[in-house]
Nucleic acid binder design. Structure first.
Lengths: 118, 118
DNA sequence: CGGTTTTATAACCAGACAGTTTTCTACCGC
DNA sequence: GCGGTAGAAAACTGTCTGGTTATAAAACCG
């Protein structure tokens, strides 16, 4: 996965307005004014966010007379998940450690087995 | 999931240096100078990146004499994946559509079965 | 103690970013 | 063609970011 693709994807996702726009687009295509409606923000403000999302490949835009309907392009999100998947074992591992620790404290108390206290 | 947690997490992941630092930390704890070594960047530059990662909860730091070893905290990555998981069906759906289209073109040509053209 | 190592802090800079208002373009309906 | 609507573009602002250098703080070593 190209690093600048991940850069743009994660940067686009780092803004709550843009995440809300993506969430809205799960319900289907929407025009700019439809997307702008829920926000206390000017129309050009929303257009800027849409340009960020488009350049990150997270949305695409059609043409319907004066309207430029936006649609979700979820494939790039999969790229992000693919990157994150490499870390999955690490957060699972920490769960296992926590689990083991709680188990020990619960019925045994900590002992030095496997703990390496030289 | 609190929106500012996701803001900080995705923003932290949007930088290739920081992603490389996280990747390095999968191999175990590392000191600041160890983390800085692979990069053509000053030590304070790396320290700034580490502070961003720490404030996002993606790493934690210990104390070993003058050293401040960093360790990966993968749980926050799981939060990011949890958010992304809500979109999984959307990218899978587009795969299915592509699959169906390719299948059609391959051996049948498009017909109206299961397509709902009223 | 004095010197070295490790890290953090401060001050600064260029550029990107989020937002605004104003203006321009394109298209529709009449 | 004219007026209204949808959206983009431009210009400006304040703030955040990513980087630098120089300096300070803390802990070790001899």
């Amino acid at each position: 996965m190209a690093t600048d693709v991940l850069d743009a994807t994660f940067a686009a996702l780092a803004d709550p307005t843009r995440r809300a726009i993506l969430a809205r687009l799960r319900e289907g295509e929407a025009t700019v004014t439809e997307l702008a409606a829920p926000f206390a923000m000017s129309q050009p403000g929303i257009s800027k966010h849409l340009r960020v999302l488009e350049r990150a490949g997270l949305i695409s835009r059609g043409r319907d007379a004066q309207r430029r309907p936006c649609r979700l392009e979820a494939a790039r999100l999969r790229d992000a998940v693919d990157w994150l998947a490499d870390y999955r074992s690490y957060w699972e591992e920490s769960y296992q450690r926590l689990d083991a620790l709680l188990g020990e404290l619960d019925h045994d108390g900590p002992d030095a087995t496997e703990r390496g206290t030289p």
